[in-house]
């Protein structure tokens, strides 16, 4: 399963675990950024979580 490789939009060759990892890394980065700069403006951090999940699913499926 980890060996299925298909050309995705990411510039490197990845398997599903790599893409999941990239998704998590981006989730953490976005959440921290959100907590610092956007949450004080009144936007809940759940919005960041939602964006990250959508982004994550897209990366894992299409990356």
């Amino acid at each position: 399963m980890s060996e299925e490789r298909k050309p995705g939009f990411l510039p490197i060759e990845t398997n599903w675990f790599d893409r999941l990892f990239i998704a998590v890394v981006l989730w953490v980065a976005l959440s921290l950024f959100w907590l610092r700069f956007l949450e004080p403006l009144g936007l809940s951090v759940w919005i960041a979580a939602a964006i990250s999940v959508v982004l994550g699913v897209w990366i894992v499926r299409r990356g």
Binding site: S31, L32, L35, R36, E39
Partner: peptide, 10 residues
């Protein structure tokens, strides 16, 4: 929840 991280970024 993420209160520790909330404190951390500030």
């Amino acid at each position: 929840w993420a209160n520790n991280y909330r404190a951390l970024v500030f």
